[in-house]
Amino acid sequence: MTDATVNADATAFAGTGEAIIKVENMDKFFGDFQALKNINMNVGHKEVVVVIGPSGSGKSTLIRCINRLEQHDAGRIVVDGIELSDDIRNIQEIRKETGMVFQSFNLFPHLSIIDNITLAPRQVRRMPKAEAEELAMELLTRVKIPEQAQKFPGQLSGGQQQRVAIARALAMRPKVILFDEPTSALDPEMIKEVLDTMKDLANEGMTMICVTHEMGFAREVADRVVFMADGEVVEVGTPDHFFDNPQEARTRLFLSQIL
């Protein structure tokens, strides 16, 4: 390893029972570039982990590896007891158990809001239409936009779209939700509504991994904060420890730049 820092270990987790996500010695390459270096991380049930770090540090790649949007090159990833291997069945199983919310919403523009939400339950979980729609309405109520059900994504504001995306992820009744910078593409006045939705989720006991730049959210909601730089986990800690008493020079530098 060229870097002086020893890769921090994020295996100790808060929450209850067995770790739901286990990442062991994971490497990821893009061609010759090593995007992730020997990542070790566990996430417990009902735990909220916030991943922060400068851009290009590999945060997004990390969570995209967990549901195989990117393929890891070495090490192991186990989600809810299922190992993420080349086995197409395992991949599908893991994707069923993990929801994902994207920076750019990625709602399906050709489908109405309700169809966006019911699509995966009906196609993947083979849920009857009526039941799926009932579920969708319930979720839309939960994210506080039930009146938009018949509209199309293009007719909604960014904040509303992202809340629909959260509802869409929830509709598969996942065990974990991965958030990939969910507020970065939003106008400032819409960030709050999305963060509030996420806080509600966390309070209800959803297991979440959030890649975000929202330090306030991290401090308030996170059980653990993971700081990444140059493809490595640099420091791990509770929000209080992390923001008030960071140990690593790189963490302090990063915090001084953004706070």
Partner: peptide, 14 residues
């Protein structure tokens, strides 16, 4: 470098 002990059967291997 991957651990090959945990191979899925070929018809499921992506």
């Amino acid at each position: 470098k991957r651990d090959t002990s945990n191979r899925p059967p070929p018809w499921r291997d992506v």
